Amino acid sequence: MKAPAFWAREGALASALGPLGALYGQIVTARAKRPGLQLGVPTLCIGNPTLGGAGKTPVVRSLAQILRSEFGIEPHVITRGYGGSVSGSLRVDPQRHDAGLVGDEPLLLAREAVVWAGPDRVASARAAVAAGARILLMDDGFQNPGLAKSMSWLVVDGPAGIGNGKVFPAGPLRERFPDALERADALVMIGEDRQGLAAKTELPVLSARLIHPLEALVSLREGTTFAFAGIGRPEKFFDSLRAAGVQVVGTRAFPDHHRFTASELHDLRAVAKRNRARLVTTEKDLVRLSPADRSEIVTLSVTICWWNRPRVQALLKGLITPASER
């Protein structure tokens, strides 16, 4: 789904849809407050207050790395596997499974952690615990009451913020921002906080930014590129290339989780050739392509850089350390 332009500002259409959005938000919040199933292991939910594009998956990948490298714990990630056809709960194997089965984000997450994909988060969590999971990381699911959360972190894209501040369909919010904050334990702010949202909460604010590997950027700066992406906010990817000094001669945006057709890929290659440019896309987009379709397409990975990593570590330690040992 591509976010409509009016979600970014106040206007007549947003105002007209406001009452419907208010009702929708009340329903979402009331449902989210229902008690969830307790499975006896720490469960950290990484969610967001808006629809798509905030940066949840890079945050989950980063936390999985920290838990494994600095705490010696192998986290198990629970994800719906949006865009995949899996119907049960499946332990993701990047060597055997593709995006058509498990979705694109689970394939990326499986590089850092054990990942369980499936539409039923509770079933996936049960499978993870049965397999020996000592901690669960939920990629999304903040508004879903099925599984009890030990801790929840809300991820916000700083420059985009919460748009016009209205609830879907009047705006990008899944529920009222204050209602979401009431159930959260920390706010993750990725990039510049242009709407001053951090000042509206007393929660710990974990500031971070998305970065690309320097060596990859150096290589891309040597020529011209044509960028394409089917993610929550393609413009964020395009802007990051330009900000890094990459000469972008053109861009093409697709909906999040888009399944590229042979015709679309042919057109992309043709326009890149006319501009004597290299095609560049995101890791998330590349995993949705077949190995044959990936040829001559450059991918640019992204990672989270925490401004205050010790604070992140302290919150994780509080999550995994029994109360009797604190």
Rank of each mutant, 00 (worst) to 15 (best):
C305M: 08
I190L: 10
D98V: 06
S150K: 03
L214K: 09
P169A: 06
S152Y: 00
L51W: 12
L279D: 02
K56D: 04
A243F: 04
R174I: 01
Q65G: 07
F71S: 10
T57Q: 11
W307C: 06
I297D: 03
P42W: 00
N144F: 08
R274T: 13
L154H: 00
V122N: 05
D293A: 15
L108Q: 13
D185N: 15
R121E: 02
E175D: 11
A160Q: 02
S219C: 08
R31S: 09
L210A: 14
I66S: 05
G118W: 12
N48Q: 08
R126T: 09
V287E: 07
S301C: 04
P58M: 07
G141Q: 05
F237R: 01
L44Y: 09
D256W: 04
I190C: 00
E105M: 12
A227G: 13
P4H: 04
L315H: 09
A243G: 13
L319F: 06
H257D: 12
V115G: 11
Y24W: 09
L37A: 14
S290G: 15
L217T: 12
A30K: 08
A314T: 14
T201N: 09
R276D: 13
Q313N: 06
D193G: 01
R91Q: 14
A227Y: 07
W153Y: 02
F168D: 02
V92G: 12
V155T: 04
E296Q: 14
K149T: 04
R61E: 13
P75F: 08
H97R: 07
R174H: 03
Q95Y: 07
L109A: 11
V205R: 02
P119T: 09
R9L: 03
M151R: 14
P94E: 11
V188H: 07
V302T: 15
V28E: 14
G52E: 10
Y82T: 07
A314E: 15
F168Q: 01
V114N: 10
R121W: 07
P234D: 11
I78E: 09
L210Y: 10
M151P: 00
G88F: 04
G84M: 08
V280W: 01
A199Y: 03
R274S: 14
L109C: 08
P49A: 15
V114C: 13
L37K: 08
R252W: 13
E235T: 01
G163F: 01
T251I: 05
H258N: 11
G47P: 03
S324R: 12
R269G: 12
L63G: 10
G88C: 06
L181A: 03
L23D: 00
G230M: 15
F226I: 08
G55K: 01
S240K: 03
L13P: 05
L265T: 10
S263H: 11
G55D: 06
P35N: 05
A216M: 11
K317M: 08
I162M: 01
V246Y: 09
K200M: 14
V312I: 13
T50D: 02
K317G: 11
A277L: 05
A292Q: 15
A314W: 05
V167H: 05
R311F: 02
N275P: 00
E283L: 11
P291H: 06
